[in-house]
């Protein structure tokens, strides 16, 4: 019934950008959601720790010169029997500090996750904008490809792309190209969701009168898509991107666990888990445990943050 809901609160236009966000509906929702606050703090701490790994890590786990085989398989917290050196998360079979390895591994995981999300978002949003705004054959082709791709699990698509692309690269350079290939493979396996969502919102927006107003003065379709429609369809995109960041990190971990991802010389969390599971039955649990728990906490925190964001941007769904 009209008038049955209170009007939105007026906002002061003065004050800094940060202040405005804090006072906005999103800011209010954030301040009143303990889950969002905790998961934001956890995510930020983990991201900072990973990015600043060289500052925090006791050793550079990829430099074989600093590794001491004598320190191998030291349990966490107890001093090594030969060197009396102590490792918080223990050490692996080559004497690598697991804490440092987890920090650097998180860095690699986050890098692959963020880059692939960025890639799939840009790619998917562009295709979705085109499909929604231009319509007709363009739309049919883009959306049918998206439909086909969405009917397979993303991990299968990523495996396929990764496998094909790796085959095209000369064997000597395969190791160096793995990171880029992984980003491309995971990115390409996730674009369809963005394209679908953006196409839907674009079809709603393009019939709004502000778009017609731009057409009346002869604005080109490209300018209308980028300057008018894009800012108005970014809300759902940020939600998908946040949730997809968690999914992409898990996807990368899965690939690495299967042995088609990051090599052990430049391990991600997934690679560390793969290496660690070989020691599980001989009692060296910490080599598996710490990378795994890190992956779980990271993915969970980002996912919860995404869930909150979706609710906050879409109050009707609550």
């Amino acid at each position: 019934m009209a008038g049955a809901s209170p009007p939105p609160a007026t906002q002061n236009s003065d004050g800094s950008w940060l202040r405005r966000v804090w006072d906005s509906d999103i800011g209010w929702s954030f301040r009143h959601s303990p889950v969002a606050i905790v998961s934001a703090i956890v995510s930020i701490v983990m991201i900072l720790a990973a990015v600043l790994a060289p500052l925090f890590a006791p050793q550079d786990p990829f430099n074989p010169a600093v590794l001491n085989l004598m320190e191998g398989l030291t349990p966490p917290g107890t001093p090594n029997e030969f060197t009396q050196k102590s490792f918080v998360f223990g050490s692996d079979s080559q004497g690598r500090d697991m804490f440092s390895a987890v920090l650097y591994g998180t860095q690699v995981s986050l890098l692959v996750g963020a880059a692939s999300v960025l890639f799939s978002a840009v790619f998917g949003v562009l295709l979705g904008l085109m499909a929604g705004y231009i319509g007709g054959k363009t739309e049919s082709i883009i959306m049918r490809i998206a439909d086909i791709q969405l009917s397979f699990p993303a991990i299968l698509i990523a495996l396929l792309i990764f496998g094909v692309a790796r085959g095209l690269i000369p064997p000597g350079q395969q190791e160096d190209a793995t990171l880029i290939l992984l980003i491309l493979a995971i990115g390409l396996s996730n674009w369809a969701q963005y394209a679908r969502t953006v196409r839907g919102s674009t079809m709603v927006e393009k019939n709004k009168e502000y778009v017609q107003a731009a057409r009346v003065i002869g604005r080109s379709p490209f300018l209308i898509m980028v300057k008018h429609i894009l800012p108005n369809v970014m809300g759902p995109v940020t939600v998908i991107a946040t949730i997809n960041l968690a999914l992409a990190i898990i996807e990368e971990a899965t690939l690495s666990f299967l042995g088609v991802g990051m090599p052990p010389t430049q391990p991600s969390l997934g690679t560390l888990i793969r290496v660690g599971q070989q020691f599980l039955f001989s009692g060296e649990w910490w080599i598996l445990f710490f990378p795994a728990i890190t992956l779980v906490i990271l993915a969970l925190a980002i996912n919860l943050l995404g869930d909150w964001l979706r609710d906050a941007l879409n109050p009707r769904l609550r």
Binding site: M1, A2, G3, A4, S5, P7
Partner: peptide, 17 residues
């Protein structure tokens, strides 16, 4: 719109959200 006329109706029939 917003003067409260529909709301008055909702209040009478006990359907205030």
């Amino acid at each position: 719109s917003g003067a409260g006329k529909s709301l008055t109706g909702s209040a009478i029939i006990g359907l205030v959200e």
